[in-house]
């Protein structure tokens, strides 16, 4: 089956059996309702047991799940209208960061997010969701407009990280991310960021300087990938599972550290198991936060964002 990951296998196996039995009951006209009922109950229990106790590494896999709703899936479902705008006006259009004007229940917002691909073709086009400098420059160009026209900004974060390549360096990956951080910190309009999948290091925070930072339950946000961390610590990327435990990259960890404001719960089985439900949960949370922020003046928004990040960090005694 497409995109099935290890944790999902026992559940899918059981569900396969149920489907088989149902099929048998129908075609052979025998009553198997008791057996089916039993199995369904077992499947439900199994699901709850598995998905309530995901390890950080399993959550990382869920966050990277190829069937998980991506930024443009949200764009299509969240908004009454969405018009995508392209290019940084300097070099080109980065397809790993998308953005445009949108209407959220009639209210105009600027929407920006990382876009991954679901298959090889799409991933080549989207560069696996790893942006070049022009992606961040496009984001800044659009955010400047949102600020000028007093529209709130909604960013969706879902990237392994900013791209590590020759051209990215030649065009100033560091400068682009640094400028985006500085620029976002000064925006005189409400900014809400949602981590919908992978929050990978500098590439993620490049769109993440927000007044409110929300995180889907099974998304992750980290300074380095578990594989990268394992490669540095033990010279063995294969020990990513252990590294994931160490890095404290889950939504629960980040809430504890005061980095994020809210965890948006996912349906049992993860966001991709019920995209509609996930998207409407995201919508409710985003609308609530935008509503609260709309009461603030532009000066309050800027100082609120500054103070929020100013507090982050833990110092020794």
């Amino acid at each position: 089956m497409v995109g099935l990951i290890e944790i999902e296998k026992p559940v899918k196996e059981l569900e396969g059996k149920i489907a088989e039995l149902k099929n048998l009951a129908e075609t052979q006209n025998i009553d198997l309702s008791e057996q089916i009922g039993n199995l369904e109950e077992r499947a439900e229990k199994l699901k709850r047991r598995i998905y309530r106790n995901l390890t950080p590494w399993q959550k990382t896999q869920m966050a990277r799940h190829p069937l998980r709703p991506y930024t443009l899936d949200y764009a299509n479902a969240l908004f009454d209208e969405y018009i995508e705008l392209h290019g940084d006006r300097h070099y080109g259009d980065d397809k790993s960061i998308v953005g445009g004007f949108a209407k959220l229940d009639g209210k105009p917002v600027l929407f920006i997010g990382h876009q991954k691909g679901r298959n090889t073709m799409e991933n080549i086009e989207r560069n696996f969701g790893c942006a070049h400098p022009e992606g961040y420059r496009k984001a800044m160009r659009l955010m400047e407009q949102a600020e000028r026209f007093k529209r709130p900004i909604l960013t969706f974060i879902d990237t392994q990280g900013a791209f590590c390549g020759i051209e990215a360096e030649e065009r100033g990956q560091s400068e682009a991310i640094a400028s985006s951080l500085r620029f976002m910190s000064q925006l005189k309009t409400p900014v809400v960021a949602v981590i919908i999948g992978e929050g990978g290091s500098g590439g993620a925070i490049g769109l993440g300087v927000a007044n409110r930072i929300l995180m889907l339950e099974n998304s992750v946000y980290s300074v380095i990938s578990p594989e990268g961390c394992a490669a540095i610590l033990w010279k063995d990327a294969g020990r990513a599972q252990e590294a994931a435990d160490i890095l404290r990259l889950t939504a629960v960890d980040l809430k504890k550290f005061g980095i994020i404001d809210e965890i948006i719960p996912e349906p049992v089985g993860g966001a991709h198991n019920d995209c509609e439900k996930t998207i409407s949960a995201v919508k409710r949370a985003v609308k609530r936060h935008l509503g609260e922020l709309s009461a603030m003046t532009s000066e309050e928004l800027v100082s609120d964002r500054y103070d929020k990040f100013r507090r982050m960090g833990v110092l020794g005694e």
């Binding site: 000064q186 993620a204 300087v209 946000y221 100013r310 982050m312 960090g313 833990v314």
Partner: peptide
């Protein structure tokens, strides 16, 4: 600094601000 995980990442935003 990897050893402080997400807290290090946030220092990028904090210093840029």
């Amino acid at each position: 600094r990897m050893q402080e995980g997400i807290l290090s990442l946030m220092q990028m935003a904090k210093t840029s601000a």
